[in-house]
Design a protein around this nucleic acid. Structure first.
Length: 584
DNA sequence: GCCGTTTTCGGCCCGACTGTTTTCAGTCG
């Protein structure tokens, strides 16, 4: 059993215990689940080499939970968990996705109305039964219906960054087979979309059957949907559908282009082909002469674009947003590269709700080829994160100064910048004193409360922060959580204009369920000349890996290296911010 | 149930907000 599955079970136990009215146990299980999720070694390896003691040594795991993990590793099951599930036979995972529903209310709904899943919930809400339960009311009932509607719209999709390790794992396993000559993931993954519906893998192979056999028998396969010589399809345990197709070497480019999409991009390409009296399909580009098809391209994508009179278009741009016209006129932007970031400007450490120390981040950032990071712990009005007040922030400033001195002394070319993720309060003001903010290298601000303001109020609230001479960057400007929460009601065009007029930078938050700003807003922002940053929003050192999803998001917004402030070394990066003008 | 010490049991991140109440439970982050 893998760490992820074990973490999920512990986390569910925590919810059950909360339903039971336990005071402290839930937090303990949740903490253990988190620790296991962040573990970089498989539990089964730890157990093999160090036994029960090894598991107990994990921070947050004691004897009782260690024994439960042992049972899971040995038998694949856990009696304690099974009993809880039997007591509450409900679809916890999905019910918890409803905003405003937590363990206590879910329990009440089950006991009073026998609600076990979203379908039951929707029916009861529509029939007006929920408002009659004590503790619920009309408004709650309406909110439940709204939330169900939002979930339905987001459909059965997966957040790219969260399924990425699994995708990489599959590709890596297959690529090691000797029968696989070439392998690539096409579809929305290649275009690096925020969410994906399924996974399309293309391979070149002279002997595909062993590959197919291997593919359908991988350990994380839940169901085999098809198992043939040229195409197989499976559903993974996590619900993701994966297709594997064998493609001929001479038409690999055409197939790759066809299966990468987007649909609209492909349609537009085929129209261009038609006008030239060509035909484009997944087997190649053909010239039509005397009713005969003569293949003129297909082995690579590049030769297909070239034969159509186009420059090569990066997959992230293939949405038919005007990229084809630019390619015809040789005016495509040179997109920011996946190795172009020199720093990360949003890091939460264990000074607030992050799980690693500043020093641990430095090590991790160096391994990720970064030259600097900014420490941006939450501030005081986010109490639950242990947010910094003025005193704590001043203490952290001193600490970072010391760390930088040490780095300098040891001749390590790395800089830690002093910052904070300051809360934008309801009225647009900040929750930290000016004098303290002035001591930071730069100031970032973000909304973390009062999400339900009107469009006008929310827009003005954020614009006020943008105008604040102390604010250099606005973090995750629209506040959305992909598949979970829509953005605040906001006039983004106005935000972009205000940012431009005040030389305030906007962020592309790279955390996989944020990716905020989103591609179309990014495109608008750089057209206006607004400067952007790409930051991981790390809450643990592993999250530095998420930077690539922020870069992908930027590429989908047609961003060049120059548009992003943290592609520059830190002194030049700071020069582009308002803080520089303040100091003059 | 875990941790840390005060070494064998007490404390456990905590404030704001929402929608329900009419003083607060539950959720959020």
């Amino acid at each position: 059993m893998e760490n992820k599955e074990i973490a999920k079970i512990l986390s569910e136990i925590s919810v059950y215990l909360e339903m039971e009215g336990e005071m402290f146990k839930p937090r303990v299980y949740e903490k253990a689940a988190l620790a296991i999720e962040l573990l970089d070694k498989p539990l089964k390896d730890i157990y093999k080499t160090q036994g029960l003691k090894g598991i107990e040594n994990i921070e947050g795991v004691g004897l009782s939970i260690a024994e439960k993990i042992e049972e899971l590793l040995k038998t694949g099951e856990l009696k304690y968990y099974k009993q809880l599930k039997k007591k509450y036979p409900i679809d916890l995972e999905n019910l918890l996705r409803i905003e405003g529903l937590g363990p206590k209310l879910i329990k009440k709904l089950y006991e009073k109305l026998k609600i076990k899943n979203i379908a039951d919930l929707e029916k009861a809400a529509q029939e007006g039964k929920i408002r009659k339960i004590e503790g619920f009311g009309e408004k709650t009932e309406q909110n439940i219906l709204k939330s169900i509607e939002f979930l339905k719209q987001s459909g059965n999709r997966f957040i790219l960054g969260f399924v990425w390790p699994e995708i990489e794992n599959i590709i890596s396993q297959l690529s090691h087979l000797k029968e696989v000559k070439k392998i690539i993931a096409a579809g929305s993954i290649r275009r690096m979309k925020e969410t994906i519906g399924d996974l399309d893998i293309l391979i070149i192979s002279n002997n595909p059957m062993p590959v197919m056999d291997y593919f359908v028998s991988m350990p994380n396969v839940f169901q085999i949907i098809a198992h043939g010589e040229t195409k197989s399809a499976i559903r993974l345990k996590n619900g993701l559908d994966v297709d594997l197709r064998v493609v001929a070497e001479e038409s690999f480019g055409a197939a790759l282009n066809y299966f990468t999409g987007s649909k609209n991009h492909g349609i537009h390409l085929r129209e261009i082909a038609m006008k030239k009296n060509y035909k484009l399909n997944e087997y190649g580009l053909f010239k039509i002469k005397n009713n005969k098809e003569i293949k003129i391209a297909g082995k690579t994508e590049k030769e297909i674009y070239q034969a159509l009179g186009l420059d090569y278009i990066e997959p992230e741009m293939r949405e038919d947003w005007g990229e084809i016209e630019l390619a015809q006129n040789h005016q495509l932007p040179k997109l920011i590269g996946y190795n172009d970031l020199k720093g990360d400007l949003q890091i939460q450490t264990n000074w607030s709700d992050g799980s690693n120390s500043i020093e641990e981040y430095i090590d991790a950032a160096l391994k990720n080829n970064l030259e600097y990071i900014a420490i941006t712990d939450h501030t005081k009005s986010l109490a639950m994160t242990g947010g910094c007040d003025e005193k704590k922030l001043l203490k952290q400033i001193k600490e970072i100064d010391k760390i930088n001195q040490k780095l300098e002394k040891e001749k390590i070319n790395f800089k830690v910048l002093k910052s904070a993720e300051v809360n934008i309060l309801k009225d647009g003001s900040l929750d930290i004193d000016k004098k303290v903010l002035a001591q930071l290298d730069f100031v970032a601000a973000a909304v973390h409360s009062h999400f339900n303001m009107t469009r006008k109020e929310m827009t003005e609230r954020i614009c006020k922060a943008i105008r604040n001479p102390l604010v250099d960057i606005i973090f995750h400007p629209t506040g959305r959580l992909i598949l979970k929460r829509p953005p605040y009601d906001l006039d983004v065009d106005k935000i972009i204009n205000e940012a431009k007029n005040n030389n305030t930078c906007l962020e592309i938050d790279a955390f996989p369920d944020r990716l905020d700003l989103k591609d179309e807003h990014i495109k608008k922002a750089i057209e206006k000349g607004v400067k952007l940053s790409i930051d991981s929003d790390s809450h643990s050192i592993n999250h530095l890996n998420y930077l690539k999803f922020g870069i992908a998001q930027a590429r989908r917004g047609w961003v060049t290296k120059n548009d992003i402030i943290n592609t520059k070394p830190w002194p030049e990066m700071l020069k582009q911010l308002k803080v520089n003008q303040r100091k003059k």
